[in-house]
Amino acid sequence: MAKRNTITKQLILDSLKNSKTAVSQEILQKELGEAVDRATIYRVLNSFCEDGIVHKILGDDGKFYFAFCINCSEKKHQHNHFHFKCLTCGKIECLPNEVDVKLPEGYQSVTFNGFISGYCKDCSKSF
Rank of each mutant, 00 (worst) to 15 (best):
Leu28Cys: 02
Lys125Met: 11
Asn18Gly: 15
Arg38Gly: 05
Gln10Cys: 06
Ser126Arg: 09
Lys102Arg: 11
Thr88Trp: 00
Phe127Gln: 11
Phe82Lys: 08
Gly118Thr: 03
Thr6Asn: 07
Asp37Trp: 03
Gly118Ile: 00
Ile53Pro: 06
Glu74Ala: 05
Gln108Tyr: 10
Glu105Met: 10
Ser124Tyr: 02
Lys102Met: 10
Met1Glu: 13
Pro104Val: 00
Lys125Ser: 14
Val54Tyr: 01
Leu28Lys: 02
Glu93Ser: 13
Ser109Ile: 12
Lys121Gln: 13
Gln29Ser: 15
Gly118Val: 02
Lys17Gly: 01
Arg43Ala: 14
Thr8Tyr: 11
Asp122Met: 06
Ser15His: 06
Val36Met: 08
Phe115Ala: 01
Ser73Cys: 04
Lys125Arg: 14
Asn18Thr: 06
Thr6Tyr: 07
Leu58Gln: 10
Ile7Leu: 13
Asp14Ser: 15
Leu103Asn: 01
Ile57Ala: 02
Gly52Arg: 01
His77Gln: 03
Phe84Thr: 05
Ser109Val: 11
Cys89Thr: 06
Gly90Tyr: 03
Glu105Tyr: 10
Cys49Val: 15
Thr88Gln: 13
Lys76Asp: 11
Ser19Ile: 03
Leu45Ser: 08
Leu11Ile: 05
Leu32Gln: 06
Cys123His: 01
Lys91Ser: 12
Thr21Val: 10
Cys49Thr: 12
Thr8Phe: 08
Arg43Trp: 09
Lys102Ala: 09
Cys89Gly: 03
Ser19Asn: 05
Lys17Arg: 12
Ser124Arg: 10
Leu95Met: 11
Pro104Lys: 00
Gly59Leu: 03
Ile12Tyr: 06
Thr6Gln: 08
Gln78Gly: 08
Leu103Ala: 01
Asp14Glu: 15
Val99Cys: 01
Tyr119Asn: 09
Phe82Asp: 14
Phe115Arg: 01
Asp61Phe: 01
Thr6Gly: 06
Ile70Phe: 08
Gln29Gly: 07
Tyr107Arg: 04
Leu103Val: 03
Tyr65Met: 04
Glu26Ser: 14
Ala2Leu: 12
Lys91Pro: 01
Ala67Trp: 02
Lys3His: 13
Glu98Asp: 11
Val23Glu: 09
Val23Cys: 09
Gln78Asp: 10
Ser19Val: 02
Ile41Asp: 09
Asn80Lys: 05
Val99His: 00
Leu32Ser: 04
Leu28Val: 04
Gln10Phe: 07
Asn80Met: 05
Asp122Ile: 12
Leu13Cys: 08
Leu32Asn: 06
Lys76Val: 13
Val36Cys: 06
Leu58Arg: 09
Tyr119Glu: 13
Gly106Ala: 01
